[in-house]
Amino acid sequence: METLEQIKARIESAVPGAVITILPNESPSGQLSLLLSNSQALAVAKFLRDDSALCLDYCSNMTGVDWPELVIKNKVKKKVMFEGVEKEVEETLETVRPPYLEAVYHLYSMAKKHGPVIIRTRTEDRGAKNHVPSLTPIWRGCEFQEREAYDLFGIVFDGHPDLRRILMWDEFKDHPMRKDYVEPDDYEYEPTPHDEVVEKVKARQAKEVAP
């Protein structure tokens, strides 16, 4: 199979306007991924599927990942002139990673028996702008998996033929796989050795008595 750089170059020449970034992966698995721009994602996906050399006709896995806002602290050593003497001072640089939701697709080729090529799309934020284009029109295998990502992460897939909740019930409000999801406080009291549960039960009993 071609390298990721070659694939990137070929996509950029075949799909005008596509912005593609190669994302690093430090793990020994060495599975790098391609970040697609939302506007051209569908066209790029179609190219990946129909291209005769790549022929990625099989979308094995599709999932969402939640990346809430994160302050990354980096300690940097800096040389400063202090009263005429050069001194090394440690400085903490804070970079803020903006919050977003990510859709990850693992593509393989059944015809050529190669893979995986990993593509990702990202939403603008985790609030109202949680839209990414659906790739179900290209790979039907994403249908249920995108519904699951919608259900559990709250990613809205534009162009999905049947976007409903799949595992949770229809009346359910929240998205349980998000990192900031708070479990509902609906414990049935059972004497359990578990600290947290006992505390929760006590707190709830206190609340019930107070008003």
Binding site: N25, S27, S29, Q31, N61, H106
Partner: peptide
Amino acid sequence: RPKPGEAYGR
């Protein structure tokens, strides 16, 4: 504790 990164195994 594995190093930061990702992997897909099947």
